[in-house]
Amino acid sequence: MANKILTFLEQRNGILKKSSLETAKEAAEAAKKLNYEVEAVSVGSTIEDLESLGKYGIGKVTFFKSEALANYSSSAYAEVVANYAKETDAEILFFSNTSMGKDLAPLVCIKIGAGILMDCVSLEVSSGQITATRPVFAGKALVEARITSQKKVFTLRPNVFNIGSLEDKKAELTVKNVENPNLSSKVVEVKKSEGKLDVAEAEIIVSGGRGLKAPENFHLVEELAEVLGGAVGASRAVVDAGWRPHSEQVGQTGKTVSPNLYVAVGISGAIQHLAGMSSSKYIVAINKDKDAPIFGIADYGIAGDIFEVLPALTEEIKKIKA
């Protein structure tokens, strides 16, 4: 039997995560180079059209279905995925490095006796082996590493791998019912934070820091985020001051983000903040101190006053979007 890569597809409310598509595409590319087979597996109660995975180079998808598994259950999901990995004798497993992936991948890893590399930002295949690069020390250094055990688990950082060109193919879908899932640990409720876009998933982020002076001035940041269709982020200084919730904090003890555009407003650019956002594709800084460290990594900067520049920027963008 040919060796195999199995890639996990994450759904929430029956909708596939974009990061799962990035990971699936990367799995397909790696499989091609390794001359392995590739297939995908997903768990849930309903899911949108999985045949479309063919476009990402996946020939076969298996969906494990149960009403009880609409929400995440670490015990049940891990059992289902590990059993399927064993059944298909998959040698390599891919997950996205999301909150579900980070929880699930290590559980499956132990069940199948694998080695694991988390949060990979690039994969290279040569002489039949995958070498992964992953950030360590909050991105202050990078490590190139290989898994030496026979079974291998990789998780891939979202919004880093390019999906690239799509194929005009359909995947073959198999649906299997899960009887008596192991629900020793299960999600009973999902609390959404006011339907807002999360920084970890946003392609554009506008973050505010202490330079905003007071919590009531954050509407300036919110307005810019809104016209850009982005999420609001924050520095730790304003989270600790209680101006913003911790879920918005970007940095070493907050979230690591890599959006296409990161706008830092009144943020000095402390090393712990940079750790969380330096892999953003484009960085804009607005800070009245031209020597602020944030300008050291910004692509474009305005060394001016927030209260003058930010409303003007929001207006200008409104104009071009109109």
Binding site: Y72, T98, S185, V188, V190, K191, S193, D198, A200, S247
Partner: peptide
């Protein structure tokens, strides 16, 4: 309660 993208999951175990 565990933090996830855009919210929290309430887990019983």
């Amino acid at each position: 309660e565990r933090e996830i993208e855009g919210g929290r999951e309430v887990v019983e175990t």
